[in-house]
């Protein structure tokens, strides 16, 4: 365990981009854990000052990023918004990676009809436009962040599965796989002990990209108004600001911060992915 941590650190030290990405995620995770301590108000608390609703306040020492038209503190919403963002990002990435890796492994290793069935399913998943699908699914199952996660898990395994499959096709031709097979190793052993460790970096790459992608999707769906009304997410903040004409009033303090945070989250995922790509292709490493 300790050596794994040290290995990750050594990798990050060598790659500034990955270091920045990891730092952003560490920052976000700390924010999510410490949100109640950091945020001065509750995310949907309607604040009164001297008995009057404190709506549309500009940034001040009391309201660092001002307030919304309903008298809610933008800074507190921003901090609490980290929680749904990370929850959506990590759970969606987890399911996408696990499903995609499993499908890719089975399809590439067994070939034949298993491969045909799984890859035709992937074709179908590729054919379905992603955001309309999310909206329709949320429309049927009701608006909830978990339904957005479900929609991602149902569709986004396709990219991972395709790439993992092609990698498995190449790894399974290697002599050590054949040696294992003729020595009597079971399919499961060949698949998970011999082949899987060889493709895990690729899974990790797709996982780190999927985190950012999931956060972006949740934001987009929430912005369109199909988000979870009980969860204050960054996308919800943007939606809220948009429908209450914050843009025309020039309340940059309201809609710019969530935009920046969404951007940071997506960027961080991409940077980590980019760094882990260098593990995959050692030739990309700068000497």
């Amino acid at each position: 365990m300790l050596s794994a941590v040290r290995g990750v650190y050594a990798f990050l030290k060598n790659d500034k981009f990955a270091m920045v990405g990891a730092a952003i995620y560490v920052f976000f995770i700390l924010l999510a854990i410490l949100a109640p301590i950091i945020a001065p108000y509750g995310p949907d608390e309607m604040i009164r000052v001297d008995g009057r609703l404190a709506f549309n306040h500009p940034p001040s020492s009391q309201f660092w990023l001002g307030t919304t038209n309903m008298g809610r503190d933008v800074f507190s919403q921003l901090i609490f918004g980290v929680r749904p963002a990370l929850m959506v990002g990590f759970t969606a990435a987890f399911f996408v990676v696990v499903a995609g890796t499993l499908v890719g492994l089975l399809s590439g290793y067994f070939g034949g009809w298993a491969d045909s069935v799984l890859m035709r399913l992937a074709d179908v998943a590729f054919g379905i436009p992603f955001e309309p699908f999310v909206i329709v699914l949320v429309g049927f199952l009701g608006p909830s962040v978990w339904n957005i996660v479900l929609a991602m898990a149902l569709l986004l395994w396709r990219d991972t599965a395709r790439v993992i499959r092609s990698q498995v096709l190449s790894v399974r031709q290697r002599a050590f796989v054949e040696a294992g097979e003729v020595s009597g190793a079971s399919h499961l052993r060949v698949l998970f002990v011999y082949i899987m460790p060889n493709i895990l970096p690729l899974s990790f790459l797709y996982g780190s990209l999927a985190v950012g992608w999931a956060i972006l999707t949740e934001a987009a769906v929430s912005f369109l108004g199909f988000g979870d009304p009980n969860t204050i997410s960054w996308g919800y903040m943007l939606h809220d600001a948009y429908v209450s004409q914050a843009l025309s009033r020039g309340s940059f303090n309201w809609f710019v911060p969530p935009g920046i945070f969404i951007m940071l989250a997506v960027m961080a995922g991409f940077y980590i992915g980019r760094g882990s790509e260098e593990i995959l292709h050692p030739k990309l490493k700068r000497v």
């Binding site: 290697r174 002599a175 050590f176 040696a179 460790p197």
Partner: peptide, 18 residues
Amino acid sequence: IPQAAMDSLNPVYLVQDA
């Protein structure tokens, strides 16, 4: 003893593991 010894050891495990 295989022809491609280069290829007969799994790259993600220590030689000792084989």
